[in-house]
Design a protein around this nucleic acid. Structure first.
Lengths: 122, 122
DNA sequence: ATCCATTGTTTACATAAGTAGTCGTTTAAT
DNA sequence: ATTAAACGACTACTTATGTAAACAATGGAT
């Protein structure tokens, strides 16, 4: 039931969404430089994710192989939905409007979104 | 510098953004039904917000009057910015695209956003 | 057969967050 | 003057989160 994924856990998920299954050490290698976490920390995060059934574990000899059990797209939609609900009363327009007013939207962004909407109506 | 506002604290802010200044009791009255928090809880949240300098306090006899020190729009933009950065690499288009693909965007939403973008270019 | 490296498990510890109780003081009502 | 209500301050307790050390088991190297 949509277990919450923390920021740190999310980083781990991004790695697994990029490639999986991976061992804890492999995941750690891929976050080590960017996040600077120790192997232990990565293991803890993987355990917590496994406990939440957000990643699955397959035994491979003495170690585990971790695989995401949640689709990245599904996760993103869920989180976005909640975000928009909580801050913008569920409407996406005000979100876009706020970002636009704050000059956080480039002309390029605007073009992209228009193009997207055009496709959506097709 | 951009102190983080928790979910519960955000509820309090919404009340103060709607009307301010307000006393703790007045804030509590306005959240009581929707959130079911006790007066004590509201006071704690107000204190934490004051400690973060997100709301200001003015003494009014024996009690305090609380006022937001952060503009709602500024707050929303900041949070949205961070959200889009973290989950969509800073691009708004993928966010809109994901919501659209998941049928979370109504035709009405699409029309609204298009209208908004049209205005932006004007 | 021995020992070290690898791996999961357990435990730890600080800060944030949610939710509230208690205490001491002040003030309005009686 | 007395008392109960109203307030802020302080304290409390649980779960989440970030970050990791300690430990135990196991398997590969020698």
């Amino acid at each position: 039931m949509a277990e919450r994924i923390s920021d740190a856990e999310h980083e781990i998920m991004e790695v697994l969404w990029t490639q999986s299954p991976l061992t804890a050490t492999e995941v750690a290698d891929r976050v080590m430089d960017s996040k600077g976490w120790s192997l232990q920390t990565v293991k803890t995060l993987l355990s917590r994710l496994a406990a939440k059934a957000v990643v699955g574990t397959k035994r491979d000899g003495r170690r585990f192989l971790y695989t995401p059990l949640v689709e990245r797209d599904d996760y993103l939609v869920g989180v976005s939905r909640k975000f928009v609900d909580r801050l913008f009363g569920g409407k996406v327009t005000p979100l876009v409007a706020h970002l636009a007013e704050a000059d956080e939207l480039s002309d390029e962004d605007i073009r992209e979104i228009e193009e997207l909407l055009r496709e959506l109506k097709a």
